[in-house]
Computed example of a mutant assay.
Amino acid sequence: MANLHDTFMEFNDIIYLSPQKKSELRTSRNSIRDDITKYFNEKRDKHTVKYKGQGSFSTNTCILPISGEYDVDDGVYIFGKEEDRPTPQTAHNWIYEAVKDRTNQDTIDKNTCVRVQYARNYHVDLPIYYKTTDTKDEYFFDSEDIPELAHKDKGWIESDPYAFRKWFINEARGKDQLKRIIRYLKAWTDNKSYLNLPSGMVFTILAVEHFTSMDRDDEALLKTLENIQEAIDDVKFWSASYSCYRPTVNTTENLMDKYASETRKKNFLEALDNFIISGKQALELKSRKDACAKWQRHLGSRFPCANIVEDDEQLAKSFVVPDVIRDNKSA
């Protein structure tokens, strides 16, 4: 059986956020924070502001996208009295004014955040929250005062990404393989972007809930994929439920509803099934290069098949055994 653990580890190094890039992104993020703090100190006497990192950058599961453009999410938390709460658009205007001159690129005011674009292939998204109490500690975490996100179309919406971050850090503590599996899943969705597969948050939750630790990353990825399929593919499995619920606010929201149209669901479940078929075939093949090609079909050209060296002695044994692995189904 082809063992591609080392190849997966090499792939992880390729898509992983390097310490140098992480430092660059953190420096840019902190400069933006300084701009916002200065603006509030000078122009907003009824409000104060603090920050919390969120998203894959804060959980150490982000990858280098094929596009080459990193995405950093940094939550901006405005504190004030209820009677001094601004409209979502006003809150966006404040943050936009504070950061609009940070770079020579266009700053974009989106529905759920203000985006600061950098020329060096990355951007910082600034979702904006409002809280009426401040616990005064470093992370100002207060489960009774749930932050509300400034959504320009939908108004103020309860949202607590820091609670999600705390949940993930607790679930992933000591599980480096789980974090790598999440990166592989994100690389798969990035390579298959034309299919509009579920978001990184969805796969993070599904991976945590269905992860199986194994000695090798190729085996662990396949087993995790199989577990996910058995849990959500209600076409193949009668006991499955096409669902993925947030582990934190809002726990009643089924994130799969966004991917429940007939076309999107069909594309996702078929892509998942094909990925699993290829993974099973790859594990059974004798040739590591042939096995790598199976994985590469789903993970993309960055998956480093060119560096594989065959075990000639092991491969020679395969010539006396009929090839029963290949079938007519494309995977």
Rank of each mutant, 00 (worst) to 15 (best):
T37V: 08
P88C: 09
E158M: 11
Q229F: 00
L64K: 12
D217N: 12
W295G: 00
F141I: 06
Y16R: 05
L195A: 09
V124R: 00
L206N: 08
Q314S: 11
K179F: 02
H210Q: 09
A260F: 13
T107E: 09
S330D: 12
Q20T: 15
I95Q: 00
W238C: 02
K131L: 00
Y245G: 08
F11M: 03
Y122K: 04
V49G: 04
F40I: 05
T48M: 01
T37E: 06
I95C: 02
F164E: 03
S28M: 05
L126G: 05
A240N: 12
R26D: 03
V116D: 04
I146C: 11
Y242L: 01
K286S: 10
H123S: 00
Y245M: 11
Q20G: 11
S58E: 10
G75K: 01
R264Y: 09
F203Y: 14
I32S: 05
N254D: 15
W94F: 09
K186Q: 08
Y51N: 08
F8C: 07
N41D: 11
E262H: 10
N254W: 15
R85K: 11
K329E: 11
I14G: 00
V99L: 12
D257T: 07
I169D: 10
S199V: 11
Q314E: 12
Q296K: 15
C292S: 09
W167Y: 15
K22E: 13
P304D: 03
L225V: 07
I66Y: 06
A163E: 12
I276L: 02
F237R: 01
Y39F: 12
L195N: 04
G68I: 11
K223H: 00
N267W: 01
S287W: 14
F8H: 10
W238T: 04
E253A: 05
R33F: 07
A293C: 10
L283V: 03
W94G: 05
V72C: 06
S239N: 14
L17G: 05
R288Y: 08
D153A: 11
E262W: 01
K50G: 01
F203A: 08
S58C: 04
K46L: 00
A220W: 02
S243R: 15
D233N: 13
A172I: 05
L25M: 06
T212S: 12
R165V: 11
P198E: 07
I95T: 04
W295Y: 07
N307S: 12
D160I: 09
